[in-house]
Design a protein around this nucleic acid. Structure first.
Lengths: 155, 155
DNA sequence: TTACAATGTCGGCCTAGGCAGATATATCTG
DNA sequence: CAGATATATCTGCCTAGGCCGACATTGTAA
């Protein structure tokens, strides 16, 4: 019923899974290079992975816990603890225990984290625009649609 | 000149970069689960990352070195050394020093590695078909085309 | 031939994610 | 109230990739 691939003709090196992995790696690497090249941000030593977490903290009004971030980003809880350790050590994020539910720890971007945000966002946009060069708006919309459907199929 | 995103309207959580990262993670995780669920392959303890490397060794006739694989998969050389260590420890891969150029080490899948290959390929195809469910062949072709163009833009 | 550059592999150190178990707190149930 | 259950975080152990420097080998130029 409408399978895309067949074992007998499948070419791993040209599969969508392979291509997607490659694109993702290249995009992250490009963002890392941009971050490292920026005089101000390179001093902070922010990586692409850290940036993605930071965006979620700065870009929304309401307070968030580590678990909230894990759900949004389908991230492992243990990995998140360590990620926040690194961000806290760099002074970009603060931990604040919730007094009403002492299991919870709210996360907040510091002033430094907030200050670095606009420049980071610029870079993210620039990198993605570069990768999407040559595509029309409707192509980008289609690509986004395909990805959304795949994510939905993941269950 | 035809940029897809603008900093003022950019929504990180709906960007193509974010979606692609999510899909890639979910696809790898799904493959890992399939591998772990298979009675025979789970005994070998093969992961998705190891599978991707193994495919390259079994799926081609000519001998390959670690550097060859690194170029094909845009992989780090140090990471590849350790990856091969793990594959070798599991008895799936053999190292063979080249006598003509003693810097080179040729890699070869063992009989066990070769034997596991067809089942692995099946799983890879099944997972990708599942993620692409609902897409027509021409949609898959378009998606592949977009990804290829993005990879090309990476430079 | 000798000095230098290039290549291939390896190891150390870092960031990074997944999984399982431990701990503390909160909530539900009898 | 007491005991079980659920939730949030943390820690240890694993795989995993990137970067850099060490080392051996090979190729090249003086």
């Amino acid at each position: 019923m409408g399978n895309i691939y067949d074992v007998r003709t499948y070419e791993p090196s040209q599969s969508i899974g392979y291509l997607m992995t490659r694109v993702k790696v290249e995009m992250l690497a490009a963002l890392d290079r941009e971050l490292a090249a920026d005089p101000h941000l390179s001093a902070l030593g922010v990586t692409a992975a850290q940036f993605i977490v930071l965006v979620r903290l700065v870009g929304t009004a309401n307070r968030k816990s580590a678990t909230d971030l894990c759900k949004e980003l389908s991230y492992d809880a243990g990995a998140m603890t360590r990620m926040i350790d690194r961000l806290e050590k760099k002074g970009l994020v603060r931990r604040m225990r919730c007094v009403k539910d002492r299991r919870l720890i709210y996360l907040e971007a510091t002033d430094e984290g907030r200050a670095a945000y606009p420049r980071m966002l610029e870079m993210s946009v620039a990198v993605q625009n570069r990768f999407l060069r040559g595509l029309e708006q409707k192509d980008a919309q289609k690509l986004k649609d395909y990805l959304t459907r795949m994510l939905h199929n993941a269950g």
